[in-house]
């Protein structure tokens, strides 16, 4: 349904096109069942970021403020990318395994990783 407008064919700039992020793309990450972190977190990441950098450096920098993070074994986490189950390969880049601009990565740790 088109927006009702004085001038037919109205359109405007899409403000968050990937070109506007200086070579990075936005990725959202969310640690499920830990709503002390109120929402998913937005990250500007180069598409070539290896998945191992996400798990090894980036996620700890966000989540280690929670004491439970020390117990987390991400190699046993369950992952979901843009609504579908996902088995990421640590050695490959985010872009190589389907992570695009404004993709959402959700993950479960602990007992619910296997649920």
């Amino acid at each position: 349904m088109a927006t009702a407008s004085l001038h037919p064919g109205y359109t405007g700039p899409v403000r968050d096109r990937v070109e506007n992020f200086n070579g990075a793309q936005l990725v959202y990450v969310h640690w499920e069942e830990h709503l002390n972190f109120c929402s998913a977190i937005t990250l500007p990441l180069p598409p070539q970021t290896p998945f191992a950098a996400l798990t090894g450096e980036i996620l700890p920098s966000l989540y280690a403020v929670d004491p439970e993070w020390a117990e987390v074994d991400l190699s046993k986490a369950r992952w979901m990318l843009d609504g579908a189950d996902w088995t990421p390969d640590p050695a490959r880049s985010l872009a190589d395994q389907g992570v695009g601009h404004k993709s959402l990565i959700r993950f479960w740790t602990g007992p619910s990783a296997t649920a």
């Binding site: 959202y28 972190f37 109120c38 998913a40 977190i41 937005t42 966000l62």
Partner: peptide
């Protein structure tokens, strides 16, 4: 002494 603050920026 570790008042919780979120280090990331939220998804809107």
């Amino acid at each position: 002494g570790k008042r919780f603050y979120n280090n990331g920026l939220p998804q809107l």
